[in-house]
């Protein structure tokens, strides 16, 4: 027997019990309980009458950098990172958006060089002036942009490069990030403890990306 049929039978029993109470039992409080049971049972039966669909989580896709052949593949990975693990889309939009709290990144890949993009992602305060408006020693303005290569987001170098490739593609530009560069950066990075410690990615040779495509 399917789960739906089982629940339907339980619902019918509950409604039946309610009807029984209302027909034969005189205690007023019990009658109210029976009435409530009837209402709730009927509600469940109506909900069970609609064709049932459960929403399944998409499979966790594993991207192997070794399989990346063209800059377009890189941009496809970057797209997924931009909208999930990288959390970029929580603030930034591509194109005008009512809800975006931070600069619109439409055409950013055409306006800025990839090196500059990389620097703004990893050292967001690099070109922000200090606040001198008080007597004590100058302070940094409170940063809005987090360090993307550090926790809690903690993207690896190849991941950041893929995001930059994606941004270039979304600007209608040819992608200047080369697959070989990314491979090289991956080798560098095994020496940098800070990046390799990234808990989310697990291994340095592959980029784990969650995708919304159903299995």
């Amino acid at each position: 027997m399917s789960e739906v049929a089982l629940l339907q039978i339980i619902g019918l029993c509950v409604v039946g019990a309610g009807i029984f109470i209302l027909l034969f039992i005189k205690g007023m409080f019990l009658r109210v309980v029976g009435f409530v049971a009837m209402v709730l049972g009927s509600f469940s039966l109506i909900a069970l009458g609609v064709p049932q669909v459960a929403s399944l989580p998409p499979a966790i896709e594993k991207f192997d950098l070794a399989k990346v052949k063209s800059p377009d593949d890189l941009a496809a990975i970057g797209q997924k990172i931009f909208f999930s693990k990288g959390q970029c889309a929580l603030c930034h939009s591509i194109g005008p958006s009512h809800s975006a709290r931070c600069p619109d990144l439409n055409g950013i890949g055409a306006k800025l060089a990839p090196e500059f993009l990389y620097e703004s992602l990893t050292q967001p305060q690099a070109y922000i002036y200090l606040d001198f408006r008080h007597a004590t020693k100058p302070e940094e303005y409170p940063a809005r942009m987090p360090h993307i290569n550090k926790d809690p987001i903690g993207l690896t170098k190849p991941e950041i490069f893929s995001v930059i490739a994606f941004l270039q593609k979304m600007s209608g530009e040819p992608i200047s990030i080369k697959v070989e560069d990314v491979m090289d950066s991956e080798e560098d990075q095994t020496e940098t403890v800070e990046v390799a410690l990234n808990a989310n990615s697990g291994s340095t040779s592959s980029v784990l990306v969650e995708s919304g495509v159903a299995p």
């Binding site: 739906v4 469940s44 909900a47 069970l48 609609v50 049932q52 459960a54």
Partner: peptide
């Protein structure tokens, strides 16, 4: 879960 299960 599907709506019917949730409704129960």
């Amino acid at each position: 879960p599907a709506l019917g299960y949730a409704a129960a």
